[in-house]
Design a protein around this nucleic acid. Structure first.
Lengths: 132, 132
DNA sequence: AATCGTTATGTTATATCTTGCATGACCAAT
DNA sequence: ATTGGTCATGCAAGATATAACATAACGATT
């Protein structure tokens, strides 16, 4: 844009997020949830997963619950008591959701790469003689 | 506003959002801001734009201010007093930002259409016996 | 010069979100 | 049977975001 001393958009970048939602029901499945699920799968524990993601156990638990109601399927299966106090494991549906979301992100990352380049090109065309 | 209503998975949709941000500075430019700017351009008034978007004038004003600091350029130019009490108009930079963002969204909508179809295809293959 | 409607900004109240307890259930191992 | 640690869940407390309120500056019009 007008009058530039170098690239104004030098350290500005494009970010994005994708999520699943419904128009009638509450709840959503986003990045944060998927990462939480991954940690559960990794540690077999909801508590450990929450800590790992910097969330309170209360919220982590609520998020999972909410997502399960939203999707109308079980993402984790838990038991309490026993040697380690209890555990939480991913269900098949949970694992499939993760896999699908990962693929989704891969596709988006591909697309954003291309789109981002175009976007800044367009912006810089006005201000920047040199392309970065 | 943001996102697309690509495919349907039980009535679940894929939604997304894109925004500009920096890794050092605060602030960001997102959909909501762009829509606000559009309303300003449409009405020549920050107050009217805020009302139109269901925001308090205070927040709308703060959002613009913040975005301007973030981008280090002026998006609107305002005067107070006069026949109508005052006005706010888009700057050239403001208009260019809007145009660039619109183009960005167009590109994303294109991409998400394709990606969404793939995504739900993948999900449906597992959970849904009947394809719709 | 008094008025009107908007811009401009600090301050206070509200609503929303998250975290932090508190309490119980549960069960392998001691 | 007692213990330890996690799951499960409601409720109070703290943090954050947004709206509401309160002034004041402006300047064309009356």
């Amino acid at each position: 844009m007008a009058g530039s001393k170098g690239s104004k958009y030098f350290n500005i970048f494009l970010d994005y997020q994708v999520w699943l939602k419904a128009q009638n029901r509450e709840g959503r499945v986003d990045d944060q949830l998927i990462e939480l699920l991954k940690e559960i799968g990794l540690h077999g524990s909801l508590k450990k997963a929450a800590i790992k993601k910097g969330l309170s156990y209360r919220k982590a638990w609520g998020d999972i619950k909410e997502a399960e109601e939203f999707l109308e399927l079980s993402l984790i299966v838990s038991t309490r008591g026993g040697k380690d106090g209890g555990l939480s494991l991913l269900t098949e549906d949970g694992r499939e959701l993760i896999a699908a979301f990962d693929e989704l992100h891969y596709q988006f990352d591909q697309a954003i790469h291309r789109i981002t380049r175009q976007f800044f090109n367009k912006l810089n065309k006005k201000d920047l003689p040199e392309t970065e």
